[in-house]
């Protein structure tokens, strides 16, 4: 899989792929059909694993030659040793998780850097829907309130606070719409929030602040 193919399939992933260094060891949480790892392997010589719970997706990953572990993200992470990945990806999956804070702490444990994306609940069509008195249904939140797998609704501002609390520093935050970064009013105009995070070095960052 080359960049053009990835861009055609998933413009959001194509944007995010720029942030991943060649030859990185990557963990993709909720890797779906494995398209991202397939691309990172074939175009950027990355290694790594996907973790995915959905039966339907496992053969798709295997068919791509992507190493996939069928586990719930939480128990899947418990199998991994500290600091064993250059980058941990959690793309459009966090909003479906019950224990978000715990997963983020685990991401910080097993990875040096992380990239997390989730639908921005503060995207303006969502705000408009709420003003009209209805739960938002959009391309990025395509479910009705009663059948959505999304347990968590967060905005760009919300997430940054939690990331800091679990020991992740925000290196970059970008709001994407159709895979294109939104510069102006991102928390209004961006449908997908994307955070590039780095494990907080407790000694160099928090210790001097206390002194």
């Amino acid at each position: 899989m080359n960049f053009t193919q990835l861009q055609g399939l998933r413009p959001d992933l194509a944007f995010i792929a720029h942030w991943i260094a060649p030859s990185s060891h990557v963990l993709d949480l909720g890797c779906g059909d494995g398209v991202m790892l397939d691309y990172l392997h074939s175009d950027k010589q990355c290694s790594g694993y996907g973790i995915e719970i959905d039966d339907e997706q496992i053969p798709k990953c295997v068919a791509r030659g992507v190493s996939v572990i069928q586990q719930d993200v939480q128990s899947g992470l418990a199998m991994l040793t500290d600091g064993s990945f250059d980058t941990v990806l959690c793309l459009s999956a966090l909003q479906m998780m019950k224990h978000v804070e715990e997963v983020l702490r685990e991401i910080a444990r097993v990875g040096r850097e992380a990239i997390v994306s989730f639908p921005n609940f503060a995207y303006w069509p969502h705000r408009v829907a709420l003003l009209r008195g209805r739960m938002p249904v959009s391309k990025s939140l395509p479910y009705q309130w009663y059948d959505t797998p999304n347990l968590r609704c967060a905005t760009i501002k919300d997430f940054e606070a939690l990331a800091n609390e679990v020991g992740l520093d925000v290196l970059e935050c970008v709001a994407l719409t159709e895979g294109v970064p939104i510069g102006f009013l991102p928390n209004w105009r961006g449908s997908l929030a994307v955070f590039r995070l780095k494990k907080n070095d407790a000694l160099s960052l928090s210790a001097p602040a206390k002194a």
């Binding site: 060891h25 290694s47 694993y49 039966d55 496992i58 990953c61 295997v62 992507v66 190493s67 996939v68 572990i69 069928q70 586990q71 199998m79 991994l80 040793t81 064993s84």
Partner: peptide, 13 residues
């Protein structure tokens, strides 16, 4: 995984 071998795992319900 510890040995960084390529491995896929299916847990069939």
């Amino acid at each position: 995984l510890k040995n960084r071998r390529q491995v896929s795992y299916a847990e069939i319900d």
